[in-house]
């Protein structure tokens, strides 16, 4: 037996296409995106500083011109796409593992969230597309007002944000999307640790608490920004 070839493909191809390998990709990219969310949130919270967007615009300028950040951002897009592509592939594969469905199935043995990550993820994806189109694309390819701080020309991304968040339906879209994100994270964060094999009687309970805390706090703060800006402008 020991001489028998275990896998039919080269080891890394095998690793990346096995069910477990695909899960590692999902978990690895997922955790990276969790980190991204945290950083992105720190940036966005600067929108709430009452200086007519100076801090925020300078921050956006820095992020858009720093070579290192730019490199990371390419990676970030790649990981998002990988996360999405693998999720579609995995979901298709998993559906094919049960060609005939049960006539009557009870599902109280698992959380709704854990069973519907694909739906939640798709909602988040739709949001990402809208969000990118509204802000990222404009700052990248033009369409933003210029503003000058200390003689250096900046895009006034703050202004674009302010205009957008004056519309109630955009605010609503953001809030709903952040709720979807919250649920997605509530399963995803701890689940990623489990997938990577990081399970221990001492640490797993802490990881679970961290996962839930992250899933509640981060989307809440993200959602707070449009709501705050809407209230500030309309009330």
């Amino acid at each position: 037996m020991s001489t028998q070839t275990i896998q039919k493909k080269t080891w890394y191809v095998n690793l990346l296409t096995s069910t477990l390998g695909r899960k590692f990709i999902m978990a690895g990219t997922g955790l990276f995106l969790v980190l991204f969310l945290a950083v992105h949130l720190i940036g966005n919270l600067q929108l709430l500083i009452p200086d007519e967007g100076k801090t925020f615009n300078e921050y956006a300028h820095f992020m858009g011109h720093n070579k290192f950040i730019q490199a990371i951002s390419v990676g970030n897009f790649f990981f998002i796409l990988l996360h999405i592509a693998y999720s579609f592939a995995l979901t298709r594969y998993n559906i094919s593992a049960r060609p005939q469905q049960y006539a009557y199935a009870k599902t109280n043995n698992s959380s709704w969230t854990s069973r519907n990550m694909m739906i939640l993820g798709t909602l988040v994806l739709i949001f990402i597309v809208v969000h990118l189109q509204a802000f990222w694309a404009k700052s990248k390819f033009g369409g933003l007002e210029p503003i000058s701080y200390n003689g250096v020309e900046h895009h006034n991304l703050y202004l674009a944000t302010k205009i957008a968040f004056a519309e109630w339906w955009i605010v609503l879209l953001y809030v709903v999307s952040m709720i979807a994100l919250a649920f997605h994270l509530s399963h995803g964060v701890a689940s990623a640790f489990q997938t990577l094999g990081l399970n221990h009687v001492k640490y797993t309970p802490l990881i679970k608490v961290f996962g839930y805390a992250f899933a509640i706090i981060v989307p809440f703060l993200f959602a707070l920004i449009p709501v705050w800006m809407f209230i500030a402008q309309n009330m």
């Binding site: 069910t19 899960k23 995995l90 998993n94 593992a97 049960r98 689940s191 489990q194 997938t195 094999g197």
Partner: peptide, 28 residues
């Protein structure tokens, strides 16, 4: 067989109460 998405339904239904900890061990 499909891939694990950590729903935990398996361990919740296992008549011998095999723990999810084993799946993490398998993963690593």
């Amino acid at each position: 067989f499909g891939a694990c998405t950590n729903t935990g339904a398996c361990a919740a239904e296992c008549p011998k109460e095999i723990s999810l900890e084993n799946i993490a061990r398998l993963n690593r």
